[in-house]
Structure formats: structure tokens, C-alpha cells
Design a protein around this nucleic acid. Structure first.
Lengths: 126, 126
DNA sequence: CGGGATCCACCAGGATACTG
DNA sequence: CAGTATCCTGGTGGATCCCG
């Protein structure tokens, strides 16, 4: 996730750079939340703020900028009063949803397993 | 990723807590690298160190402990001299690989798109 | 409404040295 | 070989105030 890969470093290298690159892009604290809220259609800034409990204005702005920079969301400004800004997913981000759904499926399947593993680990003898 | 969800917070909540939980677990800087190296079979500490350029002993140990705690890797100690420790993936982690492969596929497909988006964003007028 | 600017705390993570 | 212990820093992310 952040920190982002410096520009003077190679784009890719073994092992398994690809997945790590994705994690670099959607691994920040709020990225996935934003992408999933926006998957229901264009969202406004305040809508995201309401839909994602706990996010600060600053982090919402920063994360949106990063997603926009990476070409995952598009920012559309309507020059009205009061100003209105909508964020929508790019086709690329829509394709990403499938992979995220796979992750979510895995998480749902193994939620109990992980909880059990942690409980056992915490009560380890020693 | 880290910081991990505090124990006094609910395990899950809208929106899309599941994916975020996964990111919390495999989103740390080296987690995915370790999982992918270990997917080829049991690996030793020094093997991981060699296979993952740039990782420090400390972070290798810490990340392995977290993966073990979450039930994603198993640590097997052989009481020989010199000591020998092997790390292998649990079935749960093997299933995760499929989801990670989906992510990698998306990354491979859109590597150029993202690079282009970033280049365009950096040379934006304004 | 939709941010930007600023200050600050915390902690992930690196470097190094030491141990069984 | 496979770690642990300690110190340190950079940057993520929170809180707050201000602006067009």
C-alpha cells in the first residue's frame, strides 16, 4: 500500500510483483471501501462520507485522489451552486471488482477458521 | 493492513467488511511475497530471506508470526543441529492463492493502463 | 458542498547487534 | 541457522481550521 513505489524503481520484479502492485494500489486503509461503495453507481463526496463510517475528510480526499491518479475512479464536477462532484468507477475498476469478490468469498468461507486460529494462537502454551 | 483491527471493535460491519479483513491480513508489505514463495512447498527461514530481496530479518519474522497467528502458515521445528524450521501453507492459505491469482491477472491485464493513467495525471494541465 | 492546509501522534518497517 | 532486542525514522492517517 502506501508508501508507493518510488518512480526510479523498476515496475516489477520477482517474486510475484503483480499481486504486490495491486496491494500497493488498493491496500490503503480506505481504498476498498470507496471502490465498493462506488460500485453501486456514481457517488458524491458526502455520500461516501456517510457510507464509510470513521473515514476523515482528509483521508477520503487523499484516497480518492490516489484512485483517480491510478485511473480507477473518475471525478466529474458539475458547475452548480452548491458545487456537486461525482465519483464513478472506470471500466478497469469494474473488472477489479470480480477479483475483490473472490477475496470476499474466501473471507466469508474462512472467517470462523481465522478467528479460531487466532484464539488458539493467543492461548498457546508458552 | 497493519494496524490491525483492535480487539474491541466489531469483527465486521458494512460496507464490505470482508474484503477489508483480507486486506488487513495480507496487505502488509511482505505478506503476499511470503505466501507466494511458500506456495511452492515448505520453505525455510533462510530460503525466504533469499527468495525475497530486500526483506529484513525482523520483518520476515514479524510477518511470519502474523501469518501463523491467522492460521495461514504452519511453523514446523526440526530439533536438529543446526536448528531447522520449515514454513508451509495451510489449506486455507492454498485456497487464498486462487483469489490472489485473480488479482495478479487483473494487474497483468491493466499494468499499462495504470501506468498511462498515472502519466496523464502527472502531466495534467493545472 | 467539497474540499485544501496545517499540525501532530503513532506505528510499520529498516539497520544493527546479539543469542541459542 | 533462526531468530530476538533495541533504536530510529518516515509516512500514514487523525483532528482541526479555513476557503470558494
Amino acid at each position: 500500500m502506501f508508501p508507493r513505489r518510488p518512480d526510479d524503481m523498476p515496475e516489477c520484479g520477482p517474486p510475484a510483483c503483480s499481486v504486490e502492485d495491486v496491494i500497493d494500489r488498493v491496500g490503503s486503509k480506505w481504498s476498498v471501501s470507496i471502490l465498493l461503495v462506488a460500485s453501486d453507481g456514481p457517488v458524491r463526496f458526502s455520500g461516501l462520507e456517510r457510507a464509510i463510517p470513521g473515514i476523515s475528510r482528509r483521508m477520503l480526499t487523499l484516497t480518492l485522489r490516489n484512485l483517480e491518479r491510478d485511473g480507477l475512479v473518475v471525478r466529474t464536477i458539475f458547475p452548480t451552486v452548491p458545487p456537486r462532484v461525482e465519483y464513478s468507477l472506470t471500466p478497469m475498476a469494474v473488472e477489479l471488482q470480480a477479483a475483490l469478490v473472490a477475496l470476499a468469498g474466501w473471507a466469508r468461507l474462512h472467517r470462523g477458521d481465522i478467528a479460531d486460529a487466532r484464539a488458539r494462537y493467543d492461548e498457546r502454551p508458552g
